[in-house]
Design a protein around this nucleic acid. Structure first.
Length: 376
RNA sequence: CACUGAUUCAUUAACGUA
């Protein structure tokens, strides 16, 4: 059981569904699927991989569920964007602890419902540092860094996550100086703090400073390496990106995806495809990056061909395809796909509007603008 | 000395940005 749980957690951390499913099969054969801890790990893994139906199935089959199991299921619903289900579970669960409350709080935050987050926070019977951290992060996600910093100052205790959240808030606003000031004030920066600073440099195109920080960092993990690669890619320094990719001690799917972007940005579509084919595992980002790459080169058939092979296109993948046709003036086809896609967001609408606008079809563009449910 | 599960912070893909 311990081994299964460890491996399942590794699958969850890596968002590796195929390994997770394989492990699930072995779990079933061992007859421990419904063990409360193994079952929770399965739910956790499926939740992270976006397979809420599999998570739910296990949850329903389990005989004895403890508070951790319930909370895991709430988070699974939340990460699969089922806030409603999360709330139903939260209301239904036999006992709650502060972690359950935090999980529900985070579920509201992850939907971007700041008002709900604050309301829920007020209702909480007990709060800990994580609850406060969720509030700080919720503010920064809305670009409300001043509010975030205020909460940071007034929270009863701060840990490294609180500090990192504030730094990240400044970074997202492009306020590199402020981010740096907070970073220098914090007592014990960890690898996340350092990597957040790297990301802050990336935002501002400060490659030199990023390089300096990257070498100064006491330790680096795969995320730090990936961040540095993307900084080089963004700066058009292809060779440096490739060097890092080859030097890094371990690569994950994000590293490979970043290199695909590097090749695409460098105009090397063939090499990008080669990388895509040889990478150990492809996720929705890898597929979408390739679809978008072909689209950008006007190779619509190839883009569509890839799209149709893609295992689980999401709204971003669909929008990439719609934008491909829209930008190449094939608005009828674009509109067909736009109507066909299972879900649309504001970017999908923008892509269609831009397509019509570029073709001079202002009436159509305006009509869509009026129809769209949200505008940015 | 160390061996199992839950909540918060960093990296990669889609539209636009004079």
């Amino acid at each position: 059981k311990i081994t299964f749980v460890s491996v399942l957690n590794a699958c969850a951390d890596d968002v590796n569904l195929s390994e997770g499913i394989q492990m699930h099969e072995r779990v079933k054969r061992s007859g421990v699927e419904l063990d409360v801890i193994v079952g929770s790990s399965l739910i956790h893994m499926y939740g992270k991989c976006g397979r809420i139906e599999h998570a739910q199935e296990i949850f329903d089959k389990m005989h004895s569920k403890d508070v951790i199991c319930w909370t895991t299921m709430i988070t699974a619903c939340s990460s699969c964007k089922s806030l409603e289900r999360a709330r139903l579970l939260f209301d239904k669960m036999p006992q709650r602890n502060v972690v359950s409350w935090n999980a529900m709080l985070a579920a509201y935050a992850q939907q971007g419902l700041l008002k709900e987050v604050l309301k829920f926070f007020e209702k909480m019977p007990e709060r800990d540092i994580v609850s406060w951290n969720v509030i700080v992060a919720a503010y920064t996600q809305h670009g409300l860094i001043v509010e975030a910093h205020k909460v940071f100052n007034k929270m009863p205790k701060r840990d490294v996550v609180s500090w990192n959240a504030v730094i990240s808030g400044y970074a997202q606003q492009g306020k590199l100086d402020e981010a740096l000031a907070v970073f220098q004030q914090m007592p014990c920066p960890n690898v996340v703090s350092w990597t957040t600073m790297l990301a802050a440099c990336a935002q501002q195109g400060q490659v030199d400073m990023a390089v300096k920080l990257f070498h100064q960092m006491p330790d680096r993990n795969v995320v730090s390496w990936n961040t540095m690669i993307s900084i080089y890619v963004k700066a058009g320094q292809f060779k440096e990106a490739l060097d890092l990719f080859q030097q890094m001690p371990e690569r994950d799917v994000v590293s490979w995806n970043a290199m695909i972007a590097a090749y695409v940005q460098n105009g090397q579509l063939k090499e990008a495809l080669q990388l895509f084919k040889q990478m150990p595992r492809r996720d929705v980002v890898s597929w979408t990056a390739m679809v978008a790459a072909y689209a950008e080169h006007g190779e619509l058939e190839e883009a569509f061909h890839l799209f149709s092979q893609m295992p689980n296109p999401n709204v971003v993948s669909w929008t990439a395809l719609v934008a491909a046709y829209a930008q190449n003036g094939q608005l009828i086809r674009a509109m067909q796909l736009f109507q066909q896609m299972p879900r649309r967001n504001v970017v999908s609408w923008n892509a269609m509007i831009t397509g019509y606008a570029q073709q001079g079809q202002l009436k159509q563009a305006y009509k869509l603008f009026q129809e769209m449910p949200q505008r940015n």
